[in-house]
């Protein structure tokens, strides 16, 4: 199976394979088949449009984990200049599942932080599949506090299946590390702009996700637990992940409806990985716009709004309705 295509994209994969085949034939023969290729390409585009116009939550969650999807460092490299990765939590280790450092977004110096997944097996293991340990979150907090001292805005790119559930992680205080970040980020005296670029996996995502704006790429997901995890607890079977994904409302569109995110960053047809240039340009433009807005607010107002925003989360009945 072609790595480029997900299971539900197989009809597209078949068409694309046919186009590729025709191209090879075209080299060998005199017959002009360009017209045929153009026709098939048009058909493939239409099919993709059709498939992506009505994706289920479960399919979107597969797109958000697509093996070719751009990761944090891909975006940093494509959007920023002068990126200097800074390492370590100054207490225990450097966690490669979270990267962060100083960079420049056009004219604006920023602190950029994000979870990092690996592309091949070796790198996946090195990055621990983008699942941070406590030292990763503590590194992130160290960098954020540095940003606060030097009045730099913080840009967080979120992409993780979740915080790592391991023995060492528990021993070193995974809970405390996440809690501390939530606590500190709520009052950090500098703008924080968070974007879910792929998987927003629960507390592991939230731990660098508290801020003044929350954006999501169109086919990113954000949820309290993975669809598989939810299914295995509530349906007693991980097979029901599709149902769980739907029930939890994990997509950007649904979360925008619920007023839990500020903006959806559109992705190119077929997902971010199909056209990285376009995706990067979209994201960069949106980030710059929000940064400009946030930078123009005075800090006191910024913090007050952030606090009010945090306090507004929740849906409950009160008084006579209860």
């Amino acid at each position: 199976m072609d790595l480029k295509f997900l299971e539900f994209e197989q009809p597209i994969a078949e068409l694309e394979a046919k186009i590729e085949e025709l191209r090879h034939v075209g080299f060998d023969n005199q017959i002009n088949i360009t017209d045929e290729i153009v026709k098939l390409e048009e058909k493939s585009r239409k099919l993709t449009e059709q498939l992506f116009s009505d994706l289920s939550a479960w399919k979107i969650s597969q797109v958000s984990r697509h093996p070719l999807r751009p990761y944090t460092l891909d975006y940093i490299e494509a959007m920023c200049e002068d990126f200097n990765e800074l390492h370590g939590d100054r207490a225990y280790a450097d966690d490669p599942a979270i990267v962060g450092g100083l960079a420049r977004l056009d004219d604006q110096p920023i602190m950029v932080i994000g979870q990092q997944k690996g592309r091949d097996t070796k790198e996946k293991i090195y990055r621990n599949f983008g699942m941070p340990r406590p030292e990763g979150y503590r590194k992130a907090l160290r960098l954020m506090k540095m940003a606060e001292r030097f009045h730099l805005p913080i840009v967080c790119l979120i992409d993780t299946p979740g915080a790592y559930p391991g023995i060492g992680a528990e021993e070193r205080g995974q809970s405390e590390a996440i809690a501390r970040n939530l606590f500190e980020m709520s009052k950090l005296k500098t703008p924080i702009l968070c974007t879910i670029i792929g998987e927003g996996g629960s507390g592991g995502a939230l731990a660098i996700g508290v801020g003044d704006r929350l954006l999501m790429l169109e086919y990113a997901t954000y949820s309290v637990i993975s669809p598989e995890g939810c299914a295995s607890i509530l349906w007693k079977s991980a097979e029901k992940a599709e149902l769980a994904a739907e029930a939890m409302g994990i997509t950007s569109a649904r979360l925008k409806e619920l007023n839990l995110i500020d903006e959806i960053v559109p992705e190119p047809l077929g997902g971010a990985h199909r056209d990285r240039g376009k995706m990067t340009a979209n994201l960069k433009a949106v980030l710059k716009r929000h940064l400009q807005e946030l930078m123009s607010q005075n800090t006191e107002l910024l913090l007050q709004r952030r606090y009010e925003r945090l306090m507004s989360y929740g849906a409950y009945l009160e008084g006579d309705n209860a």
Binding site: S186, V210, V224, L234, Y307, M311
Partner: peptide, 26 residues
Amino acid sequence: GARMQESLLSLFQMAKTSAVLARLAD
């Protein structure tokens, strides 16, 4: 932990409760 049936709203209670504790600390 968080209540799955309220999905992201539950997750955000983590941030909400932590933020109010930051006020207490200050």
